Amino acid sequence: MALARAAEHASLWDVIRDDAQALARSEPAFAAWMHEAILNHDDLGGALAQLIAVALGSDSDDRAMVRRIAKGAYRSDPTLIPTAHRDLAAPLARDPACPGPLHVLLHFKGYLALQAYRIAHRLWLDGRVELARDLSVRAARALHVSLHPSAVIGGGAFIDHGTGIAVGEDVVIGDDLSMLQGVTVDHAIDARGAPRIGHGVLLAAGAIVLGPIAIGDYAKVGAGSLVTASVPSGCTAVGVPTRLVNCSPDARPASSMDQSLP
């Protein structure tokens, strides 16, 4: 299984490089950018370190610092690059309008913000809290996606469009999340505790999830909905305040949600 995943990741990187070379040949205005962003790097980690540095750094010295931080995180945590591959594959599988992996890498700011968050989260776990916060603030300022470095977000996440997203402190989100623009997942003003989001959940544009509640696996939250109570697995929550629709008779209560979330 590990060998199969490694081959899949290598194949995805080969596709990205081939597409970058083709674009550099067909559109000379992009040639220098394709070499700087993709072709000068041996793997996805090198390309991501460069892209994150360019997005978050204010000048050449600042970009060099961010690049070193990113590369250091990738060296210290060997799971980050496979997770970046899995995140990259998510929009290819779930967005029929996505042209390909190179487009995601270069133009999906939700993807880039997610990878910056993963580096900040690694720093947070290593006790480098202020550096993690600084990186998170830089990403929020540059990409308009605010993902607190203490939050836990599983692999295979897809953040579409990205603008206006806020995920707060101590939020826990399972694998295969799909999230559109304008989503907020955070503490409620009058209650302690952060939301726990299950696996395979869809949070549509403008959805707000607040407080110490659980959203069960494969649940959906409709656009513009306000969720302040738990949602069972497989149900759809819509409205302000939300009501549950499309629940199957055997829907599992969200309170029994798998506690093995990352």
Rank of each mutant, 00 (worst) to 15 (best):
V66L: 03
H103C: 03
A53Q: 00
I173V: 15
M65Q: 14
G156I: 06
Y74K: 02
L88G: 01
G164F: 09
A151P: 06
F108I: 04
H9F: 13
P96A: 03
G57A: 01
I16D: 05
M257Y: 08
L143Q: 08
V231F: 09
Y218R: 15
V54H: 06
C235W: 12
P91C: 02
D170R: 14
P149I: 05
G72T: 08
A10L: 09
G211D: 09
P78Q: 01
V145H: 06
P149C: 04
R5V: 14
D186V: 09
I69Y: 00
L261R: 14
R192Y: 10
L105Y: 05
D18V: 05
D134V: 03
R192S: 14
H144V: 13
I165S: 04
A139S: 15
V54T: 10
L12P: 00
R118C: 00
V167N: 02
D18E: 15
Q115H: 02
H144A: 15
H103N: 10
A29F: 06
D186L: 07
S76W: 04
V209H: 06
T79D: 13
P82Y: 00
R67Y: 05
R192V: 13
D250K: 08
I165G: 04
E8M: 11
A22I: 00
G198S: 07
D175A: 11
I197K: 04
V66F: 00
R68H: 09
I52K: 02
M65G: 02
D18N: 12
H161E: 04
V245C: 11
A254H: 08
R133F: 07
S150P: 04
T236D: 14
I213F: 12
N40C: 12
L3D: 15
L244H: 09
S11V: 07
V171T: 08
S225M: 10
V201P: 07
H148E: 07
R192T: 14
L177R: 04
L135Y: 02
S58L: 13
A70N: 05
P91W: 03
I153S: 04
L51N: 01
A73R: 03
G211L: 11
T79P: 08
H35Y: 10
K220R: 15
G168F: 05
R118A: 01
V66G: 00
A188F: 11
P78F: 01
L125H: 06
L131M: 11
A84V: 02
I165H: 03
V152Y: 07
A223Y: 13
D61A: 11
Y111F: 15
H103Y: 14
I16M: 03
V238P: 12
L125F: 00
D62F: 05
A93E: 13
V145Y: 03
G155Q: 14
A4G: 10
D19P: 04
G222I: 01
R68S: 12
P78S: 08
A188Q: 10
I153R: 05
E8H: 08
S60P: 00
P249T: 14
